[in-house]
Amino acid sequence: MTKREERGRIPVRERELYWQEGVDAKRFFLCVRGKLWAVLAAAAAGALFAAALYAVVRQASAGPLQYRAQVLFSIGYDIRVEDETLKEFINEYNAYTWGDMMKSDRVILPVMEAVPEADREQIEASVSTEIASDPEFLMASFTTEDEELSNRIAVAYIGAMAAFGETMQGRGLTGIEAWKTVPAEPVVPENRALYAAELGAILGLLAGALGLAGWYVLDDSVLLESDLKRRYRLPVFGYRTKVPEARWEAALNANLTWWASREAFREVLLEDLLGEDVDYETLREVPALVVIDWGTPCLRRLSPVLETLSLQGVEVMGAIIAEADNRFLRLYYGRPLKKRGPVPDPEDSADFTDPLDPKDSEGSLEDLT
């Protein structure tokens, strides 16, 4: 069995090197450039889905309409500005949460008397406070499901806080009074649909990019001569493009002419080898030159054919990539190819690795399929 007959049998070491090779950046870009719209579509779909999901959850989790009344209290401290203990005293009062103080018996009991229709638990739940940047001001909010009730609680707290301030005179406070009141208004929850859409777009973009990268990794289409050389150690005589182009025709014709002067061979279409009535007896007469359409998947179509030819004793001397995309080749190879010599015979190459060499572990196309 000649070395050419063993073509397609790849040593394990070489097969491992094939999977360890880096990504051909130019090939990757040319393959995915026409599919970048899918990444953008994934980003748009992610944004729409996230916004719609947020709207549904927001609507489902929204409770009854609530009304909020607000009162801005002014707190007078009975301390001179130059007093060294001023800052410490004010911080002590701020640390003692005003919200808890407003729920203490000294403040809430008068409120309960003024608003008998609400129990203590309801009043406490309605109170929320916010300390402004100026510690002499306190913003208190009163929120309930009843507009009138929110206003009544706010008015009751104005009186209760003023009374509490009077009891604290001489103990650090001069009094508490309401500087501004805001009647109860409907509480409109903050709409974060835009933020949800932005997050969905980012996640969709990442998912689309990962999906595109995964597609490229799994895609084993024959696009370049290197695809066949790396997978099957199968020489490529040249390209036949969809639109005839002199640069590719000249290189292919030169290789075919040179090999025809050395030995007889037969061009065989891959599609003909996929049928049920393949005449292997005729194919064994002379070496076969398989014509493979550009974009043919290796594992699903090419590998089974090459394995069958090997088992049938048909010698495969090389391949021709037909119906190749002119634009793809032009973008990949750039300038017109330099003048090329004939495809070298592996038997004449000093660098050719003998599959039968004991130092190399043997593998077959069956391992790849």
Rank of each mutant, 00 (worst) to 15 (best):
W179C: 00
P346N: 07
F29M: 11
E147W: 09
F142K: 08
V155N: 12
G34V: 01
E190I: 03
Y54L: 03
L206C: 10
G238R: 01
V127Q: 07
T369E: 04
F328L: 09
R120W: 00
L283C: 08
A264R: 13
A118Q: 09
F352D: 15
D345P: 00
A41S: 12
T129C: 11
E307K: 09
R330A: 15
K35E: 15
L270F: 04
K26Y: 02
R80Q: 09
E225C: 05
L309R: 06
Y195V: 12
S133Q: 12
E6S: 08
P342I: 06
D348G: 02
G363N: 04
R4W: 14
R301N: 12
R33N: 09
A163K: 14
A350M: 12
A132R: 13
V278K: 15
P235L: 09
S61V: 06
V81S: 03
T308M: 05
T241I: 13
R7I: 14
R4K: 15
P244F: 04
L356G: 06
A193P: 02
A260K: 11
R33W: 05
R330G: 10
L173Q: 09
A25W: 13
S128I: 08
Q66E: 15
V316S: 02
V182D: 03
R340L: 15
E190R: 05
D78T: 10
L306W: 02
A209G: 13
P297A: 03
L36M: 13
E267Y: 06
L173E: 11
D105V: 07
S221M: 14
T241W: 07
G76I: 03
I176N: 04
Q59D: 09
L53H: 03
I108R: 01
V243L: 07
Y96H: 06
L331W: 13
T85R: 09
M1H: 12
D83N: 15
P11E: 12
F89P: 08
D354C: 03
A162W: 01
G211N: 10
L365W: 00
L17D: 02
G8I: 05
T143I: 14
F28S: 12
V236G: 01
E190T: 02
L218M: 10
A196F: 02
I158G: 05
I320C: 01
K242M: 06
G211C: 08
V290R: 09
R335G: 12
A160V: 04
N91G: 10
V57Q: 13
A196T: 01
G76N: 06
R68Q: 10
I202E: 01
V107H: 03
M101N: 11
A197P: 09
A51G: 13
L256S: 11
E88A: 14
T143E: 13
L138A: 11
A184G: 10
P304I: 13
D83K: 05
G295S: 07
E113D: 13
L302T: 03
V107Q: 02
V316H: 01
S310I: 01
S364V: 07
F28V: 13
L309S: 05
M161T: 07
G214F: 04
R171E: 10
E147I: 11
R58V: 00
Q59M: 02
L270R: 01
A162S: 15
P342F: 08
V290D: 08
F29A: 14
E271C: 00
L302C: 03
L368G: 03
